[in-house]
Design a protein around this nucleic acid. Structure first.
Lengths: 215, 215
DNA sequence: GGAATATATTAGAGCCATCTAACATAATTA
DNA sequence: TAATTATGTTAGATGGCTCTAATATATTCC
């Protein structure tokens, strides 16, 4: 049984490991706001429990077992966010903090029940995929809006690295998951985009925003 | 901010303090399954934070502030149980374990939302009163079924010290909160009672059971 | 390739919540 | 009341997670 602290390390490793599956001690340290020596010693501990591959001065990698465990935590997090939004009436910008805590609850039944009441959703309120009961996750197929060309018609399906402020910004522009966007033009000097969608015939979005909108 | 561990001590103190409001170190130690020296040192710590009155070799008492804090934790516990039963379809014997964990979640909004979705209930699924948002609790007015006389007509409104097994027993007899009971007779030799209620015209309940049914 | 910088590890310390062993006080009972 | 038993406290140790300071290895840049 993993402690709450260990679970946070696993989740962070999962989140930070991109395509390569590798994570630096330094990045992990910054992400968790925990000093590097502490991280190193925890990595040795997790390596002892076969949750991460650890070799001195090499990047960290989750083992298959570690990925599964991390996936299960993320599953709980995302099901919780979904439940809070869909069944309890929270705004999607309010739920992260609460889900951060509830994800550590030990009860298969609780999360199965959420899953069932939600109709076995595949994505959370931010558009991120929900891992299955084995902790497996399908890598998402999304690209950034900023990678699109003028004239492209796309569906806004997820956000990247969502902060409260960013979600509030999206709300203020009535940009919701599922919205159909048409790219009208792209400014070359600052790469901002002008897009149109049902409720807003012409809206300008900065490059920073476009990078974080997945379609 | 109280740690999870401190919260468990506060809750136990609240639960164990009867009419006198006093609790022994020994009882607290047994209830929490934590050795006495550990309890003593934690009591000193909580006394330093003005949550308990502590004097060497004297019984423990929660301060008013401590009672409030404990009440708030119990409020979260009971709202959670209620929510799990009423809104998520759990059986009332399944929810205690989960509520034990969720009661430590830091989020006023989460519990306010539960409260609202439940229509501001005054009692939990076991019939125990739910403290208000200030942590105040109204002492319950219930008496044991075992204190009733033959011929009494009463409403079953709460259970005392409910265990899973006991709740399963009640389910098997279709004894639910709110059931109207009539005491038909009392056996003098073992103090068991014969009662009747809508679904069961004649049912015998042992003294042990009767003591734990509050009416 | 060597100096400077960035990244990672080791060593040693501290806090929190727990324990056991030993001792102190209070309550019970012969 | 004196002895016994029950309850409570002190002292010192441990494990988990964290830190800082010092050291080691890798990477970058002149």
């Amino acid at each position: 049984m993993n402690s709450l602290v260990e679970e946070n390390y696993l989740k962070a490793l999962f989140t930070l490991s991109g395509g390569s599956g590798e994570v630096n001690v330094n990045d992990l340290s910054k992400h968790l706001a925990i000093k590097m020596p502490t991280v190193t010693s925890m990595m040795k501990k997790l390596a002892g429990r076969k949750l991460v591959h650890y070799e001195s001065y090499k990047p960290l990698r989750l083992t298959e077992h570690g990925k599964m465990e991390a996936g299960l935590i993320i599953r709980k997090h995302r099901l919780t966010e979904m439940f809070l939004v869909e069944k309890m009436g929270f705004g999607w910008e309010e739920v992260h903090e609460i889900a951060e805590q509830i994800e550590h609850i030990k009860s298969v039944e609780l999360f199965d029940k959420m899953d069932q009441l939600l109709g076995f959703p595949k994505i959370d309120p931010h558009g991120s995929p929900i891992p299955d009961k084995q902790g497996r996750i399908l890598p998402n197929e999304h690209i950034s809006l900023s990678d699109c060309k003028a004239g492209d018609k796309v569906r806004f399906t997820a956000v990247y690295n969502s902060s409260d402020d960013f979600l509030k910004f999206l709300n203020s522009r009535k940009l919701r998951l599922g919205t159909e966007l048409t790219v009208l033009s792209i400014e070359t000097f600052d790469r901002s985009m002008v897009v149109s969608y049902p409720s807003h015939p012409s809206e300008t979005l900065s490059h920073t925003v476009c990078e974080r909108l997945l379609v």
